Amino acid sequence: MTEPLPTPDALRTAADRLVSALSAHSDPEYRLAVLKRLVRRLGEEQYPLFLRIVGVVAESDDERAQRLLADTFGTALRRMDLPGGALSSWGATGLPEHGAPVAASALSGHFFGATPRRMLGPVEYLVVWHLQRTQRTALSVEGFQASLARMITMLNRSEDARRLYPQKLAADAQNELEGAYTRATRERLAAIAAAWAAGESPERVAAAAADAPATTAHDWVLRDL
């Protein structure tokens, strides 16, 4: 049995609690600890849920909350300590067959055995999820572009995040070690980094990564939050 999707009300409540927790202290290190604790409590396989919660804040009309969250990601980038999620490496074997139903409880570290995995920040996670074969059903072009543009719009509210994240992506694009990224993914990371650093709109930045061939037409529902 697959786990039910959280309701919009549940997502909004979680986002409100996150913003309240970040607002409760002025120390940037404390705020980063709050963000990382949320990721840990959700669990490694629930990183998409973390992205949904962040997406609720990004879609809201609360610019203060967006800036607070973006500044916290900026702190993480300065420390090179982004709250991340794990996706299986592109060269992994033993992944479930496309289209076959898989229970969420089965997608554990034991299921994948020694499959190499790497912790990815929110932008990198979306790119790999969209472009590479992982333990998850691929993110569609439409879902990917909307999610990435929304994420970048929020991150741009922090000067540190706006400046440092493209630099990180550009560095990741040069990394051919560990098999974490395919060549196509590295090219898209480089394209995102260049467009973002050049001050392009979030929509154009997202479009820079969407011209690689999509692997499936399946979508991850991110709207109606």
Rank of each mutant, 00 (worst) to 15 (best):
L22R: 06
S23T: 14
A24N: 10
A24I: 01
H25Q: 13
H25A: 15
D27H: 10
P28G: 06
P28L: 10
E29V: 09
Y30F: 15
L32S: 09
A33F: 05
V34W: 09
L35K: 02
K36F: 05
L38H: 05
L38V: 14
R40K: 14
R40H: 14
R40C: 06
R41Y: 03
R41H: 13
L42Q: 09
L42W: 04
G43H: 05
E45Y: 10
E45A: 15
Q46I: 00
Y47R: 07
Y47M: 05
P48D: 08
L49S: 06
F50D: 07
F50S: 08
F50L: 15
L51Y: 03
L51I: 05
L51A: 03
R52G: 03
R52Y: 02
G55R: 14
A58N: 06
A58T: 04
E59C: 13
E59I: 00
S60L: 13
R64S: 14
R64M: 14
A65H: 04
R67V: 12
L68E: 07
L68Q: 13
L68M: 13
L69N: 05
D71R: 10
D71I: 08
T72A: 06
T72N: 03
F73Q: 00
F73S: 02
A76C: 13
A76N: 11
L77Q: 12
L77K: 08
L77I: 10
R78I: 06
R78C: 11
R79H: 12
M80R: 15
M80P: 00
D81W: 09
L82M: 14
G84E: 07
G84T: 13
S88C: 15
S88H: 10
S89Q: 11
S89L: 06
A92D: 09
A92M: 08
T93V: 08
T93M: 03
P96R: 11
E97K: 15
H98L: 15
H98N: 08
H98W: 06
P101F: 11
V102W: 01
V102H: 03
V102F: 00
A104T: 13
S105I: 09
S105V: 09
L107K: 12
L107F: 00
L107P: 01
G109H: 02
H110R: 11
F112L: 12
G113A: 04
G113Y: 00
G113E: 03
T115N: 04
T115Y: 00
P116F: 01
R117T: 10
R118G: 04
R118N: 07
L120H: 12
L120C: 01
P122Q: 02
V123D: 04
E124C: 00
Y125H: 13
L126Y: 02
V128L: 01
W129R: 06
W129Y: 03
L131Q: 14
Q132V: 03
T134Q: 01
T134G: 08
T134I: 05
A138R: 13
S140L: 08
